[in-house]
Design a protein around this nucleic acid. Structure first.
Length: 479
RNA sequence: GGCGGCAUAGCCAAGUGGCUAAGGCAGCGGUCUGCAAAACCGUUAUUCAUGAGUUCGAAUCUCAUUGCCGCCUCCA
């Protein structure tokens, strides 16, 4: 029992992650030995999120699934940023209640997340429902002198925090602050100070979008929203914070600042940044007019698994170039895995010429884990998977895989898919009419009636069903 | 201007000091097949943006150069 426990601990200890705070890979050690507390920056819900917004969510999903696979319990909080300038303006323009407006886009986000097979166990928290925690934080920051009120807005005074800039490695003295910030909009002591609470505008007051505080009628700023959600649901110190690479400064830096001023702790121990999606060399974003929504991709025939694979198939610390071709590549790769699974599922023989399937599965797990342990090296992990598929395909083509072995292999793939979430392992069913066509074609082939068989194959293709004839019989798959 | 990062085959991509530079996609030739598809076998980088240096040894370390991206704006 004790040796088993030791083995488990050893295994748990093997994960390495690149921590932005230290700018290097470090061994991952959670604060509690068996549970990981993590948070991912969620979407702003003033419009339908796009592919670029989902990368960090898929990356954090992959990481949380891997940590669960490694034996940890994971509490993963994703905040929904539902009080922003854009959503306030957008809802006004749409003549909608802010909450209704936000909920409309939140629903799209949740549907997309499901489509992308993001774990339903994630905890989604609306910023608007965390205002109590925000005000508590501001209260304390005011008491400690980290914040000041000016004309009924409350700002964070970064000069009070000695090592402000540690996360993004920024030296404010050398930075062109004030050049890009429209100072006329603010009454801050210093351009780099950021708003914790903004005084409500006249229209916000009319619409009831404000909170009454001792500093005035205000609504919270973005950085405070994120800091409050994690503080309330994960505590002042937690394990992992995942965000987009473009959010390190000022957003994450400011979250760290709030956390450190509030509790002396940075919040998360490990800060992870997922890189961006590029379109023609530029960041995918709504403001650059190059955003692609999940709905759009869905309309173009991409399954959630295809898109998910596209988003997680490359090192999370490198930008991904979006293109139709790249997406097709992802789809083809997913298909390759599907085909193997379908072929395995129809095996019903008892050959005794078994290759050493157990050894292959053992190697697969070893290589797969080893790669992911190294800062989620997905390419290495996938190489292990494809190596395995190649090794299985040889005896499979020669009918040398027995039914029990096939099920063993499927089980191993299921295990891997708990992490990847891209395979389709469940039994698929065809519409009765379509299944009949497949049967009819089989009959025609057995009778040597090739013309009829080919005609039926064309019909099936038109219906989006491909038939693959192998020595084990005919299998089919969706195109 | 400051900070961070990237450059490896037709395309995507791993490898960060030492065995033949993983893997995927696409292509080509073959096997299988009634024909296809799928699968399999073979094939596709004497070379890692360029130049110099360190070293017995460099894609990997150092310096310089070039090109590209992100942040320094509530796009997120």
């Amino acid at each position: 029992m004790s040796t088993e426990l030791f083995a488990v601990k050893q295994e748990l200890a093997a994960v390495n992650l690149y921590n932005i705070l230290q700018r290097r890979k470090t061994l991952f050690r959670p604060l509690k030995s068996e549970q990981v507390f993590m948070r991912t920056c969620g979407p702003t819900v003033h419009d339908a999120p796009h592919l670029g917004n989902y990368r960090r969510l898929v990356v954090s999903d992959l990481l949380s699934r891997y940590l669960i696979f490694k034996g940890y319990k994971v509490k993963h909080v994703i905040d929904i940023v539902d009080i922003t300038d854009k959503s306030i303006r957008g809802s006004e323009k749409a003549e909608m209640d802010l909450a209704d407006y936000s909920n409309k886009y939140l629903q799209i986000f949740l549907d997309d997340a499901q489509y992308l097979n993001i774990r339903p166990e994630n905890i989604y928290i609306k910023a608007s429902e965390t205002v109590d925690a925000m005000l508590k934080i501001v209260e304390k920051l005011m008491d400690k002198g980290y914040a000041y009120e000016k004309l009924h807005s409350v700002y964070f005074d970064i000069s009070k925090l000695a090592d402000y800039g540690r996360l993004s490695n920024i030296d404010l003295a050398k930075t062109r602050l004030g050049q890009s910030i429209d100072l006329d909009d603010y009454e801050k002591d210093s351009p780099a100070d950021f708003a914790l609470l903004k005084r409500a505008t006249l229209s916000e007051l009319k619409r009831g979008i404000y909170h009454k505080t001792r500093w005035g009628n205000v609504r919270p700023g973005w950085h405070l929203e994120c800091a409050a959600v994690s503080q309330k649901y994960l505590g002042t110190a937690y394990d992992i914070h995942i965000s987009g690479a473009d959010e390190t400064f000022p957003h994450c830096e400011n979250i760290v600042a709030i956390n450190r001023a509030f509790s002396g702790h940075s919040g998360a121990q490990y800060w992870i940044g997922a890189e961006l999606i590029l379109v023609d060399g530029r960041k995918m974003s709504r403001s650059l007019n190059n955003a692609v929504t999940i709905a759009h991709l869905k309309d173009n025939g991409y399954r959630g698994r295809d898109i998910r694979f596209f988003l997680l198939g490359m090192n999370y610390r490198k930008p991904i170039s979006y293109s139709e071709k790249a997406l097709q590549m992802a789809r083809n790769t997913v298909k390759k895995i599907d085909t193997l699974i379908h072929r395995l599922q129809v095996i019903d023989n008892h050959t005794h010429d078994d290759p050493d399937v157990d050894q292959m599965i053992y190697d697969l797990h070893l290589d797969f884990d080893k790669a992911l342990d190294d800062d989620i090296n997905i390419s290495g992990a996938l190489a292990a998977l494809f190596g395995f598929i190649g090794k299985i395909n040889v005896p499979l083509a020669q009918s040398k895989i027995s039914g029990p072995d096939a099920r063993k292999i499927i089980k191993a793939l299921e295990k891997i898919n708990e992490i990847l979430g891209i395979m389709d392992i469940g039994e698929q069913t065809l519409h009765r009419d379509v299944a009949e066509l497949v049967q009819k074609r089989e009959g025609a082939r057995k009778a040597g009636n090739w013309q009829e068989a080919d005609l039926l194959r064309d019909q099936l293709t038109a219906l989006g069903v491909e038939v693959l004839d192998s020595q084990q019989g005919t299998i089919w798959r969706f195109k």
